[in-house]
Design a protein around this nucleic acid. Structure first.
Lengths: 304, 304
DNA sequence: TGTGTTTCACGTGAAACACA
DNA sequence: TGTGTTTCACGTGAAACACA
């Protein structure tokens, strides 16, 4: 039970953003004791020319939220760039952006000539990895997008699910479950991508043995408006159609020995007997419908 | 059952923002067929000077997310202001802002001289109301802030809970439950404000009859890390302490005669015995935990 | 250790019930 | 109709189980 209990500090952090870290008055950014970028362990931020920075070639999300971008730019005009971006030096004397594309673009839009940056020697691989992880930590990815990002971390960086989980702050099982979405037939993946089907529904559907059944099930979920819990139950029933009995009534799959004893007892007492045995522990239940039967029963039991 | 079923259109809208409405190339904003502000029914947007606009005196949130503000400004530099702001004409020829403070501030930061605005004759009252509702629709209010906003709508505009619900897109019961938070003692309100206690915990605590008990309960919830469901159960038990028995186990109000017999039987057999009697019909349940006990029991029962 | 998979506790939000 | 209040279905995320 590590989910949100009342005092969970993760809940506290929500929605506050960087506000508390921002200086209230304009200041020369280089002099500001700004918070380091999450990935940067060492190195003080340095002011570098925005013109000397090349775009991150690994950044796939070219369409940014324009409104947010504008807001950030306005803040930069007012307060300066606060959190340094992360760049790596190139051989030609220029810099390549690794993390902070929005801050960089906003700064240019705000008319800034320089931007505080942390310089770090990272390989192509590391740069790509940082970019993917940064994207994952933005909250607006749909489940299929997350799945593809996890998949890439696994495939291109040979990270285990465990490592991906640690790196992105998710749970290992969740990483695994997102990855499983990629095994859905395309039509169903599309439904998840568009939000027609939730992550929970899709995950339940994955229990089915073939793509055709998954497509059928997805359609049925949508048509009937099944909840995730109902979907789980429906699919479980479809996969285990034999068990007609309820698990609470084990006397249907009665052990032959137990059955023998029970029937013998039933004949002896002339009353309905149920034996609810679990490996030598259990209950003997004797039903009576007349007080007279009860008295007879008592006699049998007390007589030793 | 109107919560998120798979095809719920409300889910679709999430996280996409205004992106799809934004023009992809810079354009003269006045010519753009921009989406109207949610509250504006009529009137084409007009370009007005940013200098001629006075700040919304009802806007209480003066601390804006600076990063977002900057981003918005950058977008405005790139694409122009997209969604018109809402203003009302003042007697002195100037305009007073009603909705769109962020867009207005971002535009100024982006160096714009004019901004598209919808002019609307609204009373002081209406202006305030629009402002409060707009704030409520921003997603980052904590439960206490929401409660105070609802309270204000009720107090200052004599809106019923039903009307508030319609106006803000919430459910009537939810509005009521938020309002109830204001009846919590201050210390507990503080815990909700800071996220130490969730909305669900607080609401359950409200069932208690006095503030002292509420404070005690809140502390207990935090100390023991109770879930909302556990909190509900604990409080319900505290309020209904009489019923010790479960409804399914009426043998606690055992008939003295039945009890006598049962105890006698228990002693004779050396096993736990339950007698579930309903006016001369019922069951005798004998529990065993060793096979040996079971055999002894069988002997007693079979011997007639 | 690593992965695949199912099940279910979690807090939220609204349905449901009660009362005036 | 309007409000107060409790209860519980909802999808998510992780615990739990299974297997190699």
């Amino acid at each position: 039970m590590t989910t949100a209990t009342p005092a969970d500090p993760k809940r506290r952090a929500l929605g506050k953003g960087l506000d508390s870290l921002l200086p209230r008055v304009p200041a020369k950014p280089a002099e500001t004791p700004a918070a380091p970028a999450p990935e940067a362990e060492g190195g003080k931020p340095r002011e570098i020319s925005v013109e000397s920075i090349d775009r991150n070639p690994y950044q796939t999300r070219t369409v940014m939220n324009q409104e947010q971008l504008s807001e950030l730019s306005a803040s930069i005009t007012a307060n300066g760039v606060v959190q340094p971006i992360l760049v790596r030096p190139l051989a030609n004397g220029r810099f390549q952006l690794i993390a902070g594309e929005r801050r960089w673009r906003a700064s240019m839009l705000a008319g800034k000539k320089t931007i505080p940056a942390i310089l770090r020697q990272v390989s192509d691989e590391q740069a790509l990895e940082i970019t993917i992880v940064e994207n994952l930590q933005r909250a607006d990815l749909n489940p299929m997008e997350q799945a593809r990002a996890f998949e890439r971390l696994g495939r291109e960086f040979h990270m285990t699910q465990e490592q991906i989980a640690t790196r992105t702050g998710k749970d290992r099982a969740s990483v695994g479950n997102f990855l499983r979405l990629l095994k859905l037939p395309n039509s169903v993946q599309q439904m998840v991508e568009s939000g027609t089907l939730t992550f929970g529904h899709a995950r339940a559907i994955l229990a089915l043995p073939d793509p055709e059944m998954m497509e059928e099930a997805a359609q049925l979920v949508i048509d009937r408006g099944l909840s995730v819990r109902n979907t789980e139950a429906w699919i479980s029933a479809k996969l285990n159609p034999v068990k007609v009995e309820k698990p609470g009534k084990p006397e249907i799959h009665e052990d032959p020995n137990v059955r023998e004893v029970r029937e013998q007892l039933q004949r002896a007492l002339g009353l309905k007997v149920t034996i609810d045995d679990h490996k030598g522990r259990g209950k003997v239940i004797i039903e009576y419908s007349k007080l007279e039967d009860f008295d007879t029963l008592l006699e049998s039991l007390s007589r030793r």
